[in-house]
Amino acid sequence: MDIATVLQAVGLNENQVAVYITLLQMGSGEIQDIARKSGVKRTTAYSVLDVLMQEGLVSFVQKGAHREYFAEDPRKLPKLLEEEKRRLNRKQERITEALPELASLYNAHATKPKIRFYEGIDGIKQMFEETLELKSGTEMLAFSSAESIHEYLRDYVPYYLEQRVAKGIRQRAIAEDSPEAREHQKNDAKELRQTRLVDREQFPFSNEINIFGNKVMIASYKDLLGVIIESVEVARTQKAIFELAWIGAGSVAVSR
């Protein structure tokens, strides 16, 4: 077991952990010895010991002009964890109280466009998770590459589809034709989706564009990066472009 990691989990920082473990090993010691053996600078060790004493993990006795510090019984650590829980609860209460005012400040600028960037597979998954915040019965629009999704998000897709269907979020998608896209299209009804396939030679696209609410998500699987643009105007324009493409895809759609 990594003792240092456990101690950090209950709220001690790296220097506090080093000093406390050193004192446990030494039994007792003066500041210069504690600093030398723990690797913590002497000037820093003073403040670290003060904190540990406040937490009840260290005590001292005065010996002339010097203090000798002692590590307290480690069985006091559960009490420290309880205090950490109480601190977190107090923080949560304060945040909850402040939320209405914070939300009003946020909403005051809600009409300003917002752009957020994401990187890596986890970043792309995070963008998809945001589409699940839509209300039940809402429709999202997508330009999609089932082949790329299958390659990069194979394990995530079943979970995502299950969540989207459970939330009652519908989708219309224009996808380049591929074996993976045809398999997805077979499940359109049960996955609350309508899909139109287009010839991949004539209309190649390997990234993902989702339009939902007042947001537009663009994900590049090859580059493992993406962006969400939150803007009423941008979303409205992209929806219009999608509707135009949807009509066009109806006339050039690849048959099953």
Rank of each mutant, 00 (worst) to 15 (best):
K76G: 14
S145H: 10
E147D: 14
E83R: 07
I174P: 07
L49Y: 08
R182K: 07
Q163E: 14
D50T: 12
G168V: 00
R90S: 09
E183M: 11
S178W: 07
A166V: 01
D73S: 14
P78L: 05
L99Y: 13
R116T: 10
E147S: 14
L99M: 14
F117T: 12
S144Y: 12
S47W: 10
E130V: 01
N187D: 08
V48E: 01
Q163D: 02
A108D: 12
N89C: 03
L105W: 11
F60K: 04
A110V: 12
N187Y: 11
L88M: 09
I121M: 13
E83V: 04
E72C: 10
D73P: 03
D155I: 00
G120D: 03
R116P: 01
L153Q: 09
S148H: 10
R86K: 14
Y118C: 03
G120T: 03
P78H: 11
G120F: 04
E82P: 00
S148Y: 12
G137F: 11
L132W: 05
Y159D: 08
L99C: 02
P78G: 05
S148A: 15
E133C: 03
K63M: 09
A146W: 15
E119Y: 06
F143W: 15
E119C: 01
L141V: 01
G56K: 08
A181V: 00
T131I: 10
S144A: 13
K167M: 03
M53I: 02
D188L: 00
E72T: 00
K114H: 09
G137A: 09
G56H: 07
Q92S: 09
K63C: 03
I115K: 06
Q163Y: 03
F143M: 02
M53A: 09
G120Q: 05
G120W: 05
T96Q: 11
G123V: 05
L81V: 03
R87I: 02
E147K: 15
S148P: 02
K79C: 01
K91N: 08
E82L: 11
Y159G: 02
K167I: 00
K79N: 07
K91S: 10
E180F: 10
P113W: 06
G120I: 01
A181H: 06
E97M: 04
P100R: 10
E129C: 11
E84S: 06
E129G: 04
I115A: 06
I174Y: 12
A98W: 10
R116L: 10
K85E: 08
K114W: 06
I95Q: 14
E147N: 11
Y152C: 05
L99N: 07
A173F: 05
R154D: 13
L134V: 00
E129L: 12
Q171A: 13
E84A: 11
K91G: 00
S145G: 09
E72M: 10
A98F: 11
A103G: 00
E129K: 11
Q185K: 15
A98C: 02
S136R: 13
G137N: 04
R172W: 09
